[in-house]
């Protein structure tokens, strides 16, 4: 990896308490060429050194995807370079190859603000989604719980930090779903947290926010780790990768390490900078597309609901 430049809009969106799509698109339009220039300057490359351009095709916010896709198409066309379309989740997963080579079959647990997925990798760039969330993404539930506890945006890391100081003394439900299912559901858990806080308030009781955070976090982690472990055994995988923004969660990292230390399965957790949304991971997944010869035509478009391919 020669360079990896990220322009985060978190500061700008903080005032709205969440990402506002229109504002995100406006910022992207203003910054896109500056960020491309910085990335190329840091890597000390010019367009004549490039063999292709990789870009996120989807899923994501349509207005934001459009900026990336159209900028990539314009630069690729200007220099007559091939264009490699990348699925955002494939990007999260392939961040792992920046660290270590894949051992197939492999399993990836992708957890972020928008996604909670268990993906089986049969071979190079061969993905099969075996489990997904049926309602909220884990990261989404974190943000909502954080807001209920009055923690600042973005709430995920705040809940993680607070959980370190608390005890898991509140009974909260875990949605295991059907016995053989690898799917997830976090809306029940989220509601239970809100109800617990609401009922305590009605009774005039004080609940320690750190204990709420710790109990909530324990429930999320338990279901994530258990299902990953079960899938790893059932599919006889040789490697497990923890990917996505929530992979930065200390509690989840520890639990995953504990679950796989004694096994033959190799656990890979990319460094934090490759876990949160970044372009290095899109480059890594673009590399796979290059290996497979999967180029896009000039009609490439942003697809907000793109399925993993």
């Amino acid at each position: 990896m020669l360079s990896n430049v990220v322009a985060s809009q978190i500061q700008s969106h903080k005032r709205f308490g969440g990402v506002v799509p229109e504002i995100a698109s406006r910022h992207h339009t203003e910054n896109i060429t500056l960020i491309m220039e910085q990335a190329m300057a840091e890597a000390e490359v010019t367009f004549s050194d490039l063999d292709g351009l990789a870009v996120t095709e989807g899923p994501g916010l349509v207005g934001a995807l459009l900026i990336g896709v159209n900028a990539a198409k314009a630069a690729a066309f200007a220099h007559q370079l091939p264009l490699y379309p990348v699925h955002h989740i494939a990007g999260h997963i392939q961040a792992a190859r920046l660290e270590r080579e894949w051992k197939y079959p492999a399993l990836a647990l992708v957890v972020s603000g928008g996604h909670t997925e268990l993906v089986l990798l049969h071979g190079e760039g061969e993905y099969e989604v075996i489990g997904r969330t049926r309602d909220d993404a884990a990261g989404e539930a974190y943000d909502k719980v954080a807001r209920t506890l009055g923690l600042p945006y973005p709430g995920g890391p705040q809940v993680d930090k607070l959980a370190e100081e608390g005890t898991e003394d509140i009974a909260l439900p875990i949605a295991w779903l059907e016995e053989d299912s690898y799917d997830f559901s976090f809306s029940g858990l989220k509601s239970a947290v809100m109800n617990t806080l609401h009922n305590a308030k009605q009774r005039g009781e004080q609940i320690e926010p750190a204990n709420v955070a710790a109990s909530f976090q324990a429930s999320v982690i338990e279901v994530l780790v258990e299902k990953t472990k079960r899938a790893a055994e059932n599919y006889q995988v040789r490697q497990v990768v923890l990917a996505g923004g929530v992979a930065a969660n200390q509690g989840l990292r520890r639990a995953m390490e504990k679950a796989f230390t004694a096994s033959d399965v190799e656990l890979t957790i990319p460094p934090f900078t490759y876990c949160t949304d970044n372009a290095a991971m899109i480059g890594a997944a673009g590399h796979v597309q290059w290996l497979k010869g999967n180029t896009a035509g000039w009609e490439l478009n942003g697809v907000p609901g793109l399925a993993l391919y």
Binding site: R26, T33, M36, E37, G63, L66, N70, A74, A78, H79
Partner: peptide, 19 residues
């Protein structure tokens, strides 16, 4: 149109910058 304008502007500025 916000989206339409952004598509044109992004394409134009990226082509211009990259060339």
């Amino acid at each position: 149109s916000y989206t339409g304008v952004r598509i044109g502007v992004t394409t134009a500025k990226t082509m211009a910058w990259s060339l």
